[in-house]
Design a protein around this nucleic acid. Structure first.
Length: 302
DNA sequence: GCGTCCAGGTCTACC
DNA sequence: GGTAGACCTGGACGC
């Protein structure tokens, strides 16, 4: 095994642990989280197929990546490892405009000092799409089971029983019945298969969506064109693409909103939409941070 | 252990 | 454009 240690210097308002715990992604394989020692780890697959296990932690305003691979970690590979982590942790995303907007509203002035706002994402858009599909219409424990099965059964294996997230070709290479029976994806199986086949066959370039400059509504429609990704899923995928115009409401978020704003009384989605409309293109992020405010205790170091 | 009910988004057919 | 029903799984519950 070849080991190396890489150091990344993020921007001043970057908060490692708040990004790791921004939503549930850190607990879905191949991500693994060590809460006690504040370490995020996962298996990365580089463009040339090299598998690299990484453990990331933060100290003295820097990120330290411990990388292990069966192949030699050349300068090019080390560069790609850094680049993938910067992308996952949204380190190049400028939230200055968001924090400026937050300071204008008394109820959101708590946000800028916490450094909250960056949402952890996967190395690839494809992985985010598959995982988001696995969050629809089921409990979180079932989402975890489906993603664990996908990774463990269709991913590439590494030492220590670790597996990578499966490629589009790996999922496209098995029949729908296999996904139903072994991944336990149920009626989502044909949707997972169709997405994987389109991406693997080059008919759908989802990776370009992170760099796309098309209007958000058009990007939303492109995500919605994937069968199995409806209003909720597409809205939340957009957040992982750096667009925050959609709310991405699910039953948990609705419940939190009812508690926080209506003393538990139900209201329509339209009412929720009206509430956040004044916050313009940042409304989806304001909504999410407001619903998860108790996840971000300002007293904690980040 | 078994059967029943329910929660959880999306799609499709129908009005 | 709005709505009802089907899709599938796991968990809770009663027996």
């Amino acid at each position: 095994m070849n080991r190396t240690r890489l150091t990344v210097s993020p921007s001043s308002n970057f908060r490692f642990w708040r990004t790791v715990y921004s939503h549930g992604w850190c607990s879905l394989p191949p991500f693994q989280v060590d809460k006690e020692n504040r370490i995020l780890s996962r298996l990365l697959e580089l463009k040339d197929g090299t598998l690299v296990h990484c453990s990331v932690r933060s100290s003295e305003s820097r990120l330290h990546v411990e990388a292990t691979s069966a192949r030699n970690l050349t300068a090019a590979r080390r560069g790609e490892i850094k680049s993938q982590w910067m992308d996952c942790l949204r380190m190049n995303e400028d939230l200055g405009g968001f924090y400026a907007e937050a300071r204008k509203h008394r109820q959101y002035r708590w946000i800028p000092p916490t450094g909250a706002g960056r949402m952890l994402r996967s190395p690839t858009v494809f992985e985010d799409l598959v995982k988001m599909m696995c969050t629809t219409n089921c409990s979180w424990s079932l989402t975890e089971a489906m993603v664990k099965n996908l990774t463990g059964i269709l991913g590439r294996t590494f030492t220590g029983g670790l597996s990578s997230f499966p490629t589009p070709a790996a999922i496209a290479g098995v029949p729908e019945s296999f996904i139903r029976k072994n991944i336990r994806a149920g009626y989502r199986s044909p949707y997972l298969l169709e997405l994987s086949e389109r991406v693997a066959g080059g008919k759908l370039d989802v990776e370009s969506w992170r760099r796309s400059s098309v209007p958000t509504v058009e990007l939303f429609n492109r995500v919605r064109s994937v069968k199995g990704l409806g209003e909720y899923a597409a809205g939340n995928i957009l957040k992982l693409l750096g667009r925050y115009d959609y709310l991405g409401l699910d039953s948990w978020v609705r419940g939190r909103y009812y508690e926080l704003h209506r003393k538990g009384r139900k209201v329509s989605d339209g009412t929720i939409a009206k509430h956040y409309a004044p916050y313009g293109s940042w409304r989806g992020l304001f909504l999410w941070l407001e619903m998860t405010r108790d996840w971000h205790d300002p007293a904690l170091p980040s």
